[in-house]
Design a binder for these strands. Structure first.
Lengths: 250, 250
DNA sequence: CGCAAAGTTGAGGGATATCAACGAGTGTGG
DNA sequence: CCACACTCGTTGATATCCCTCAACTTTGCG
């Protein structure tokens, strides 16, 4: 039985018959779900694709800032590294998400992005784009939206970390992940957890044991079914109920 | 004895003799500590100032997106509101910080910004700026840097929430706040906590009691001295030590 | 003065980290 | 093919951190 792998390359509008490893501007905007009325980037522009194998870093903390990346397929983990090697997972970017936005200011990446499975990204050469874009205002809006979206997402995350208990965090994470998969055209009730429990714990501010226990508890309760990384959501309402039972939600 | 109030209006380069309530482009860039080589915004452009009284909201969640704001003096709290009234403090913007960046994409603010003391902000009319800016690339970089900086700050915050224990969080907060005051030209060892313990707790993912206890403990240990909102840091190294004693720092 | 909001302090318990042992999955080399 | 090592995941017992609840004090303000 083949699990969901990164084989949905045809899902995101690939009209060019002989696909050189590149995306057109329209394809990129479609991937990122950004609509810019009357955006006129030179249609001749193309965004080259890059394949990243599982476990390989797309960029590392401290690297000189270069392009930003739009995930086309697969899953990454974005990690903030402490000086002494301790680390904090910041998120799990998937298709349609953007990587590398931090680092624009300091001109070097502050985080590290690792592929959790074989993945593909479209390279967006921000510095060069600034010059060849069509109407300037449109292009500004493009990146504004990317950044603003990222900010909104991180706000949600802080809310999650700041006001929910352990089980609520895990439940919220599962729901959000399901929604993201649904947004990509997959089932929102059956998918795979591509990250380890440890990474999930780091992301949620919990230990791997607590994450594991929460999942087991949900499983016992019949709300979900979890076997290793395979996951099925049976009772979405039940999960939302658990999220609502936040610990110290003012 | 007069405490530090918002009376440093002359600190941030106000060469224009008869200051109408407005800032020049140069003054704004200086305030934000952003250097753009050869940026040529029309020098005729001016950014009007707005006074915000303590307790007044600069904008509210759901408001139609308008300008973004650069804090010139005072302190704000940025709050994410849940549907049912529960809320999460996202930060405490001070002079040089920018407010309202979220909401660019959705075209309405997602958060709420309240003044913790009488404050001043410079209004940056993002939509209009897009057209009258000088060379397009420069202006892009301007906002890119703002957004990127904000992202980096939120990454730090997630690290704080995700990997530190209660006392470490409070200690880290005090150190960071001290650095910010130092950056503004104030003492980094003697300043005021403009926010309530409740807000601080929300920001740090703790209860007000835990915050209060941590401060009291630091006081007893002689590391700081706290009386109400007045605060003095005696032993910065000691605080850093406490931060280093993180609970589950991998 | 009197009231409301903010802050402090204590007692107690629940939630979650820690420590430890084990099982399951995976890749490697003999 | 199997033994081995290694990572990942699960489960249990225990300790501890921090939240909850409660009473009280202090501050600020009309």
């Amino acid at each position: 039985m083949q699990l969901q792998t990164a084989s949905h390359a045809t899902r995101t509008a690939a009209p060019a018959p002989c696909t050189a490893a590149a995306l057109s501007p329209d394809e990129l905007l479609d991937l990122l779900k950004i609509s810019l009325d009357g955006l006129n980037i030179d249609p001749g522009t193309s965004f080259t694709l890059r394949r990243v194998r599982q476990g390989v870093a797309l960029y590392r903390a401290g690297d000189l800032f270069g392009p930003i990346y739009a995930v086309r397929s697969g899953t990454f983990k974005s990690v903030l590294l402490d000086a002494e090697g301790s680390y904090q997972v910041l998120g799990f970017p998937m298709a349609g998400d953007v990587l590398g936005l931090d680092g624009i200011e300091a001109q070097h990446y502050r985080t590290e992005a690792l592929a959790l499975e074989d993945s593909e990204v479209a390279i967006i050469p921000l510095p060069r784009l600034a010059h060849l874009g069509g109407k300037a205002g449109d292009l500004q809006h493009f990146v504004y939206k990317l950044l603003s979206r990222q900010l909104a997402r991180e706000h949600m995350q802080m809310w999650l970390l700041g006001s929910l208990g352990a089980e609520s965090r895990v439940a919220a994470f599962l729901l959000i992940l399901g929604e993201r998969y649904a947004h990509l055209g997959y089932s929102n009730t059956r998918f795979n957890l591509r990250m380890t429990r440890l990474d999930l714990g780091s992301f949620l501010g919990l230990t791997q044991e607590t994450v594991s226990r929460a999942l087991s508890r949900f499983d016992e309760a019949g709300v979900i079914q979890v076997h290793n990384k395979e996951l099925r959501l049976f009772d979405v309402d039940g999960l939302q109920q658990i999220v609502a039972n936040a610990r110290h939600a003012a």
